[in-house]
Amino acid sequence: MLIKKAADILSSEITPKSLYMNRRAFLAGTAIAGAAAVAGVGVREVASPSEVVQANAKIDGIKKSSFSTTEKITPYKDVTSYNNYYEFSTDKEGPAELAKDFKTRPWTVTIDGLVKKKQVLDVDAILKMAAPEERIYRHRCVEGWSIVVPWVGFSLSELIKRAEPLPKAKFVEFTTLNDPKQMPGLRVPVLEWPYVEGLRMDEAMHPLALLCFGMYGEVLPNQDGAPLRIVLPWKYGFKSAKAIVRIRFTEDQPINTWNKAAPSEYGFYSNVNPNVDHPRWSQAKERRLGEFLKRPTLMFNGYDQVASLYSGMDLKKYF
């Protein structure tokens, strides 16, 4: 796989104009009590300067995937300016700016625990393990909003197979970089750092589980988890760990960060489930960014093919 600098590709070209226009239409339709104009006339496209000068590296040779949804893709601008990435900031607008100078090279990932091939891999070596695919996935945040993102990567199983886990390995644990110098949010103990996530081995081996390093045909932006993250479309967004530096195979179930922070609110599995509410809010509906009315949330976020992983489990208990 080749990653070449393509200074001529602007993010605004990647995102179809019509998608921007949709949100404008929605905004125009939203009258805000007594405040300025409601009519959508003369509303201009306001592109932030950073978006215009940003020249992202295009990823070559991306294959299409049958796992992709045909739903409307969320505008690139939204996906890169609305980020839950507490290592940088607890404000969603924060990471875009604060992650600007984040160093994603050199970058290594430590593979250890119950595997035959314990090793420290260069991220570029990982990227060459398999051909990049575009996977257009629905992504549902535990907070009740959702987006549709054309991720780029390949199945996480490609990496796991090569690491050759021992038969004793039942779980995989992912750790995010813990560098307070680069990530200001880590200087604040809102969560226990570093960020840790985990999957059962069969979940991690499921072809939908994506090892991801790009989106919208380009290298992953820093605020979206560069250089390497996982994407688990049937689980709430926080399960999809970003900026991964360590993948460890274990016999015991890892304790993921949010579960540690509030065990009654965030479980280990955290599968998208409209029938199990967050103790403080309902999970029955979600707001797709750019849409006005909420839509019903689907079991496993609509990825029914994972249901067999949980057959016989009480998902109210193992939420």
Binding site: T30, I32, A35, A36
Partner: peptide, 20 residues
């Protein structure tokens, strides 16, 4: 504050999740 909010709504600068 209300004027500012209205202006941001009008110019499409309320961010990705305007209702929030």
């Amino acid at each position: 504050p209300l004027g500012y909010l209205g202006w941001k709504a009008y110019s499409g600068n309320l961010g990705a999740n305007p209702i929030e």
